[in-house]
Design a protein around this nucleic acid. Structure first.
Lengths: 233, 233
DNA sequence: AATATAGTGTGTATTTTTTACACTAAGTAA
DNA sequence: TTACTTAGTGTAAAAAATACACACTATATT
């Protein structure tokens, strides 16, 4: 492709904020960098977009190369373009996020495919240290995004195991929103959405009364959120 | 700044979707391009980001250069990065939007500062033709954004003259949401937000009963939207 | 077998918000 | 004075959000 565009020393990259939920904790996927700059620092999985791939494809590839996770559907949330955000040149980075099901999925032990990362680790939010580049800021914005989104769209299911109890769902909401919710009101609201399928199954292996298990009903969810964006008559 | 980053023939650009509202019509600001590619086509005001400026600053500069509009605060809404979106090379573009007050503001007659654009024109949405590049898609996404946002945040005031009637406000909502609203319910809702200041003034120059004028109260608005993001107890 | 424990599961009254719906009042123009 | 055009208003019903407390059930322990 011939170009008459100016040639800057500029590149664009993708950084991924992947949320998981396990053992009652909200986690994100971090890599330990194996190259300069910020060698040995923890960072979001991120890398440079190739010339011949779209941003969405790049996001998927990059996440795979750095963490081994495949086929994760991510959404864009913001693009970061401060002049000095990268010490080696002008790099703008497009932030992508996803929420994925961790528990019970042993495929999700992350293993870097390239040696750009030493390892990839699910890190509880409570244990976050200072990250490389401006990744703290990027993470913060992603977290704002899901906190915001969850308060008007029931998207939290993506983080839970396929079968979950209402208490687990409530805990997840409490962790993301950072506040206690009322059990009765929470259940009423969730069940009223009509997007949960009650199963004939109960929790197992708990040393107390086992709770009913539920499944998320994707079809009803899709129907529900077509008619959204109200403003009444 | 020394760099060891790969040097791609890639650049990033900004495209601006600037909404205005005038004579009961919603408009966006378009330029007629004066350079290839897409010479003589209508397009969103957009150009390439310099190496030493942040995206936000670039957005402001670019809008100014192409339309003469200065000091417009814009927000990012999406980044477009399909491989072939620009015929001359790999360009990703960050979309910014703003809603601005048109009526009664004669400074807003847009005049390009560079000769990259022949002219800049406020174009009613009804008169939109096929735009250059993927600008139709970019515009569509910006419009979705404001439609979405307006249904949970009263941001429409930015488009109205400083003093406006409730009927004008309602018309604006109707245009953006593309549906008729009930006058009584609309007024009740707006007044209940408590972010409108009723003035001791009436509309002038109309050949029928003049309506009361209102002003938007920025301070109360700010207060209101701090306590948002509910989910009750 | 009895008891302790820990989490499950449920109902109701109150308040707030949303919705539906139609007429009179005021000002201008003829 | 009348005709016209838009401004301005209230209420009832339904739906959604909130506040609030206790009995039940399964298991583990003694």
């Amino acid at each position: 492709m011939e170009t008459i565009l100016p040639k800057f020393d500029s590149v664009f990259s993708i950084d991924c904020v992947i949320f998981g939920f396990d053992e009652g904790e909200l986690k994100i996927l971090l890599i330990e960098r194996n190259v300069e700059p910020f060698k040995d620092w923890w960072a979001l999985p991120g890398y440079i977009v190739e010339q011949d791939e779209s941003l969405d494809n790049a996001a998927e590839r990059i996440l795979y190369e750095l963490t081994g996770l495949k086929g994760i559907y991510m959404d864009q949330f913001y693009t970061f373009g401060d002049v000095n955000r990268h010490p080696q040149g002008r790099v703008i980075t497009v932030g992508y996020y996803a929420m994925i099901r961790l528990s019970g999925n042993k495929d999700l032990k992350p293993v870097p495919i390239t040696n750009y990362a030493k390892r990839a680790v699910w890190t509880p939010l409570g244990e976050l240290r200072k990250l490389a580049f401006d990744h703290d800021k990027i993470f913060g914005r992603a977290f704002d995004k899901i906190r915001n989104k969850i308060s008007y769209q029931p998207i939290a299911f993506e983080l839970l195991p396929e079968k979950f109890t209402l208490t687990q769902l409530q805990h997840l909401y409490e962790v993301i929103l950072n506040k206690k919710l009322d059990k009765r009101n929470f259940r009423k609201k969730m069940l009223n959405y009509g997007i949960l399928k009650e199963l004939d199954e109960k929790q197992k292996g708990v040393s107390y009364r086992a709770a009913k298990l539920y499944k998320f009903d994707k079809r009803k969810y899709a129907r529900l959120f077509q008619k959204e964006l109200s403003f009444g008559k």
